[in-house]
Simulated scan of single mutants.
Amino acid sequence: MERLVQGVRALPGGRPAWCAGAVVLAGRGPVVAVEDATGWAVRYRSYDPERQRGVDLPRDRWEPMRVGTVFDLASLTKLFTAVAALQQVERGFLALDEEVRGHLPAFARGITVRQLLDHTSGLRPELPFHDHPGRAAQLALLWREAAAPAGGPAGAHLYSDLNLIALQLVLEQLTGLRLDALVREGITAPLGMLSTSYGPLAPQGVAATEDQRRPWAKADRGMVRGEVHDENAWALGGVAGHAGLFSTAQDLAVLCRTLLNGGAYGTARILGPDAVAALLDPPGLGFGVDQPYFMGELAGHGAAGHTGFTGTSLVLDRATDTFLVLLANTVHPCRRNGGSAPRAAAADCLARAVARAG
């Protein structure tokens, strides 16, 4: 299993050109097979656009990556929103095939809760909430889009942050609780995921993300650390259905094991097996299924997972009872398209190790 870590460190995409640092944690059944960290949680003080490189902090201020480093999960947040939604379905307060307009009247006819979860609502990928301060202005943007989705007819797959933002609004209206409270009370507290929460967080122990400045970013915020990287989640107050959660590899391993166990971990149960199957069975509700670009050789027989823009990812494979969490700060000090080759390489290592073990 040491090859799993070596794959992240040694492949061309896994060198610092892809990320400043990374944490990898993988397991099978109740056993954690590998848990390691490499590189730096914080290395740069800024980004130099003329030289297209990071400007280093003094060497004594570099902070090493540790297995307990906290990461901005970016779109892995969507998985928690999806679990929170299925909890309401299990309790009979929400139905997957009911129309969203029953909760949010601005939505066009025919768009269902299921379509928000599987990204077939027709909503475009995002809206510039970051350029429209104030909840009223932001909601006005969303309602215009929801009334006549610009992404195409409902039924076609189009990945959209707006789906999970809308689902957040449905859940909050339905329960009278903010999404952060729903996640805490329904998921992280029962499972003992004490390092998982929405920000802002004190920066110590948190991996830095980006030196956000226009024109490459959508806001001028400087080096971001402990606050959500996603500009829209930041504009929405830091608690959003599509982004905003922070966590560690160890906490995410607990979530993976919970889902592989059919919704239970130790004495806690957050979902029943049928709800877990709804999340993970193709095409997946909130989860992507069999996506080789980041799942590598784990894809092909029902592996499910997700990636996050900041460099995060997780994969769980019910067929072999294995999981892989790979967290990296690929946007430190600046966003770039580094691809997912290291993610796929790590998944390949895990798949081959499992095949050898039988």
Results as ranks from 00 to 15, higher is better:
residue 352 R to D: 15
residue 129 F to L: 14
residue 203 P to L: 09
residue 143 W to C: 13
residue 279 L to I: 07
residue 117 L to Y: 00
residue 53 R to W: 01
residue 301 H to L: 05
residue 228 V to R: 01
residue 244 G to A: 10
residue 220 D to S: 08
residue 106 A to W: 09
residue 11 L to Q: 01
residue 93 F to D: 15
residue 342 P to I: 10
residue 285 L to S: 02
residue 61 R to Y: 07
residue 33 A to C: 07
residue 177 L to C: 12
residue 348 D to M: 00
residue 355 A to V: 02
residue 164 L to T: 00
residue 276 V to Y: 03
residue 126 E to S: 02
residue 67 V to S: 09
residue 341 A to K: 03
residue 273 P to L: 05
residue 128 P to D: 12
residue 245 L to V: 06
residue 334 C to M: 09
residue 195 S to T: 10
residue 352 R to N: 12
residue 104 L to I: 13
residue 105 P to W: 12
residue 49 P to N: 01
residue 337 N to I: 05
residue 101 R to C: 13
residue 293 Y to V: 10
residue 325 V to H: 10
residue 127 L to V: 06
residue 115 Q to K: 02
residue 301 H to F: 03
residue 13 G to A: 10
residue 116 L to T: 10
residue 66 R to V: 00
residue 76 L to Q: 10
residue 68 G to P: 09
residue 271 L to W: 11
residue 277 A to F: 00
residue 333 P to A: 15
residue 56 D to G: 13
residue 201 L to H: 11
residue 35 E to F: 02
residue 180 D to G: 08
residue 74 A to S: 14
residue 158 L to P: 02
residue 105 P to F: 14
residue 255 L to N: 05
residue 49 P to C: 02
residue 43 R to L: 12
residue 289 V to E: 13
residue 79 L to M: 13
residue 30 P to N: 09
residue 140 A to Y: 00
residue 64 P to R: 13
residue 164 L to C: 00
residue 266 G to M: 11
residue 251 D to R: 14
residue 76 L to E: 12
residue 352 R to I: 04
residue 74 A to W: 14
residue 246 F to Y: 11
residue 260 L to I: 12
residue 210 E to S: 10
residue 221 R to W: 03
residue 139 L to P: 05
residue 243 A to M: 08
residue 195 S to K: 12
residue 233 A to R: 03
residue 204 Q to A: 13
residue 279 L to H: 01
residue 297 E to P: 00
residue 84 A to W: 09
residue 336 R to V: 13
residue 184 R to K: 15
residue 316 L to Y: 04
residue 269 R to V: 07
residue 73 L to C: 14
residue 255 L to K: 13
residue 313 S to K: 01
residue 9 R to A: 15
residue 75 S to C: 06
residue 9 R to K: 15
residue 222 G to I: 00
residue 233 A to T: 07
residue 32 V to Y: 03
residue 174 L to C: 05
residue 18 W to Q: 08
residue 134 G to R: 04
residue 62 W to I: 08
residue 232 N to E: 06
residue 251 D to H: 10
residue 54 G to C: 06
residue 104 L to M: 08
residue 200 P to W: 01
residue 111 I to N: 11
residue 155 G to E: 11
residue 119 H to L: 07
residue 210 E to C: 09
residue 248 T to W: 03
residue 258 T to K: 14
residue 272 G to E: 10
residue 216 W to C: 08
residue 144 R to P: 04
residue 269 R to A: 11
residue 60 D to Y: 04
residue 47 Y to L: 12
residue 298 L to G: 08
residue 277 A to D: 08
residue 274 D to V: 07
residue 168 Q to P: 11
residue 136 A to E: 14
residue 50 E to W: 07
residue 118 D to W: 03
residue 136 A to I: 00
residue 76 L to Y: 13
residue 278 A to Q: 10
residue 63 E to T: 03
residue 61 R to L: 13
residue 189 A to D: 10
residue 105 P to A: 12
residue 276 V to P: 04
residue 102 G to R: 15
residue 149 P to L: 01
residue 217 A to Q: 01
residue 254 V to D: 04
residue 81 T to C: 13
residue 342 P to D: 03
residue 242 H to T: 08
